[in-house]
Design a protein around this nucleic acid. Sequence first.
DNA 1: AATAATTCTTATCTTTTGTTAACGTTTTGA
DNA 2: TCAAAACGTTAACAAAAGATAAGAATTATT
Lengths: 201, 201
Amino acid sequence: MDTLNALQKFRQHVETYVSLNDAEWEVLAPYLEIITLKKKKYFAEPGKVCNYIGLVVKGSVRYFHIKDGEEITGYFSFENEMASSYKSFLTRTPAINYIQAMEDAVIVNLSYAHMQQLYADDIIGAKMERFCRLVAEHYLICYEDRVTSFITQTPEERYNKLLETGGEVLYRIPQHYIANFLGITPVSLSRIRRRIMKISA
Amino acid sequence: MDTLNALQKFRQHVETYVSLNDAEWEVLAPYLEIITLKKKKYFAEPGKVCNYIGLVVKGSVRYFHIKDGEEITGYFSFENEMASSYKSFLTRTPAINYIQAMEDAVIVNLSYAHMQQLYADDIIGAKMERFCRLVAEHYLICYEDRVTSFITQTPEERYNKLLETGGEVLYRIPQHYIANFLGITPVSLSRIRRRIMKISA
DNA sequence: AATAATTCTTATCTTTTGTTAACGTTTTGA
DNA sequence: TCAAAACGTTAACAAAAGATAAGAATTATT
């Protein structure tokens, strides 16, 4: 994954939300930072302010909390998805979760300070505002759906829905991460899987 | 609650996110619609596209789904909070939940169409973009926290946290709504309350 | 290649939650 | 004002989930 390619992916991602002409892109591009994260390395850590919002252009990252010494996985970002400890990034307060590379990853980063500069830029400012509004709205909707699933569905129903719609998540990550994602223990997910197998067998 | 007062509250709410001078306000104000909702009346309904985002200036509303013929309450908006079936409003697709007045309510509404006009307005457009970005980011953070609580905490822990931080929610709404909000049944919440009483007694 | 670590399943036991129903109390609405 | 509806608690039982541990299979690591 070379630099040009990574930047190109970022541009394409922005353009799924707002149009960008070359002049605008020329303003934006210099603010971006490309990083590589070896598997198990951290993008964000508890106690540290998350300074970047990044686009995962290769690999994937996993979000997790530590509770009673145990990792509890809450979310994932795959290729062409944004990654950030959003609350920390936006409010400039220490994060409470880890974000860790699940696979060797390449991420195109935009720092908080650079983002503020871009908002204030005459050429790209308005587009950035809109882009970030649309991104926030997009993830807001994702979270709305997720909260709804916790409120209205049983763990088994959530898992069945994930089987239908989950796609990538399902065969790229270990089952016990999925269990956490669903809000249950790995042991419980294993039992749910057995129940489902019996029914569909 | 007279018209001027309601509009003033809306302006104040916007100004907690972005500054507004009188000229800008003069552009924005005509797009607002003030409605009164009698208790039990609906702000949004499943199957219908939610056409408004509103600021609750008096009273409160409750969000709920119907599952197996039962109401499941997922959220509330009180005074000086926004209300909308966000996904429906933003994506122009039918809502899947009700939003209903819990108490007689006054709401300052902005329609989707008007919002688009405001985004495109020379005077107020940039401010509106930023305001709506910040609102989306605010609720994104709320949802992030809520999902985290479902992932990392037991129902009892969620309830205890709500007791600490919940404030208004706790003494203005019935317990069985709170149970749904926490993702459990009313019976189960009643038992949790008894457990807590025994410990603290 | 050998060893260690991870992952998933299964079993056992305990705890919690869901379900249903009953009861008294409070609130609502006609 | 009076009947109906809503609300919260409790009980009893069933179902599900958590905790812990063991074991097999797979994957990583040296």
